[in-house]
Design a protein around this nucleic acid. Structure first.
Length: 408
DNA sequence: TCTGGGGTCCTAGGACCC
DNA sequence: TCTGGGGTCCTAGGACCC
């Protein structure tokens, strides 16, 4: 409780959120000049319109065709054919080259790290970083949990550029000006090094900086200061709040909430009644309050792989082969992870029609044996392949396997 | 007509223990 | 005849994100 109260007073931060523009597609475009200016969709195989996957990222040219992330690749293919008939360029469909994107992602992290002591890689193409100039000062004066930082964090503080340290002496206005300059520098360096653009939001917390970064894509830069937060939020749809997806959006809509300003009319208790504990989160988000800290690194909690078959199938031998391969891949990644053992195995089976079942088993003892892992995983899968136990003869669309509960 | 693959976090209910 | 209540672990499923 006490810590919470202290953190509520934790204002005056300057947090940046950097979001790469059409990341995968932009990299492909930058890496292959022949693609320049052409519509590109990075994703699973198009297979002449028969592919079963979705688009990961479409570049802005392809978005003009109506192609976007998560669109079924078959539909993207149709849109491309339609455009072709109209005399426009056909869409270039490319597979996902995750290794390459991770390489670029690391390069971007390194650039940001030159200017900010605390950086949170939120995903392969998103980063939060703290540009509060008096970070160490704040920690010392507040005497709160901000001061009780790990020794590794403290050692990072020592490496803070001298320039940032000087900022502690200047006025608040200058602090924001300095943060703005740093963001522009980072944007410029990324563009020079990788020939790709990003959008940045600068705000008093993670929530607002993330929303701000999405406001002027591509190559945008939006600054929202503390006193501007509520005005910035009010006209936005609640769906723009991270964490409010289709379901929550619909529940809110049924309660007369479309915009964030509608959400603000509800009391803490009302929102709890409507959405349970999550409603309480929303109560604060609607007001632009977010005291969450940046997370510089997080432990992996699970490792898993899954695959969708080209055609729905019941062929137990075929399914078994693919399943074994998935297990091998998961086990390889487990080995590379450095964890010593794991305790829980889960499998997923998705049937034709998208009905999805998961079965998990936590073993009595942690294991590190590939043989035992595969045996136990297979035991979980078997009931779904047994025609006696799958009486409706349901065809299988996808299988997957994952492990969790790791030991170091 | 469709709906990938990699994750995280949360909840509800049951089992079990003291 | 009456069966508490707190805590933890586990499973299945849902919602969401990139």
């Amino acid at each position: 409780m006490k810590n919470e109260e202290i953190s509520k007073s934790n204002t005056n931060r300057i947090i940046a959120h950097l979001d790469m523009d059409a990341f995968f597609a932009s990299i492909e475009e930058a890496d292959s000049p022949i693609f320049k200016g052409k519509p590109i969709a990075v994703g699973s195989e198009a297979l002449n319109g028969n592919g079963r996957g979705v688009v990961s990222t479409a570049n802005y040219k392809a978005r003009e065709y109506g192609i976007h992330s998560a669109l079924p690749i078959s539909q993207a293919w149709q849109l491309s054919q339609k455009a072709k008939k109209e005399g426009k360029d056909e869409v270039i469909f490319l597979p996902v080259d995750m290794e390459r994107y991770e390489q670029v992602s690391c390069g971007i992290y390194d650039i940001i790290k030159k200017y900010a002591n605390v950086v949170e890689p939120a995903s392969i193409d998103e980063f939060y970083f703290d540009l509060t100039p008096s970070l160490s000062l704040r920690g010392a004066t507040e005497g709160s949990d901000a001061a009780i930082q790990s020794s590794s964090t403290n050692s990072r503080l020592l490496r803070r550029p001298a320039k940032a340290g000087l900022l502690a002496m200047t006025g608040e206005d200058d602090e924001w000006k300095q943060a703005e300059k740093i963001c522009l520098k980072i944007k410029k360096e990324i563009k020079e090094k990788f020939k790709i653009t990003c959008s940045v939001g600068l705000a008093p917390n993670k929530l607002i900086s993330k929303i701000a970064a999405g406001k002027k894509k591509p190559d945008g830069f939006v600054i929202v200061r503390q006193e501007e937060v509520e005005v910035f939020l009010e006209p936005l749809s609640v769906r723009e709040l991270p964490g409010v997806g289709p379901k929550t959006g619909e529940v809110l809509r049924k309660n007369g909430v479309e915009k964030i300003k509608d959400l603000k009319k509800f009391s803490y208790e009302d929102l709890y009644d409507i959405l349970g504990k999550y409603g309480l989160d929303l109560y604060y988000k609607a007001k632009g309050i977010d005291d969450s800290e940046l997370i510089e690194s997080r432990e992996v909690k699970s490792i898993g792989e899954q695959t969708t078959f080209d055609k729905d199938t019941q062929d137990a031998v075929y399914i078994g082969d693919i399943f074994e391969k998935l297990c091998s891949d998961v086990f390889l990644r487990f080995k590379e992870s450095g964890f010593k053992s794991f305790k829980t195995i889960a499998i997923t089976v998705r049937f034709k029609g998208f009905e999805t079942k998961t079965t998990a088993k936590t073993l009595k003892e942690s294991i590190s044996s590939e043989k035992i892992f595969k045996l136990e995983a297979l035991k979980l899968l078997l009931p779904y392949l047994d025609s006696r136990k799958n009486p409706n003869n349901k065809l299988i669309r996808l299988i997957g396997v994952s492990i969790k509960n790791f030991n170091n």
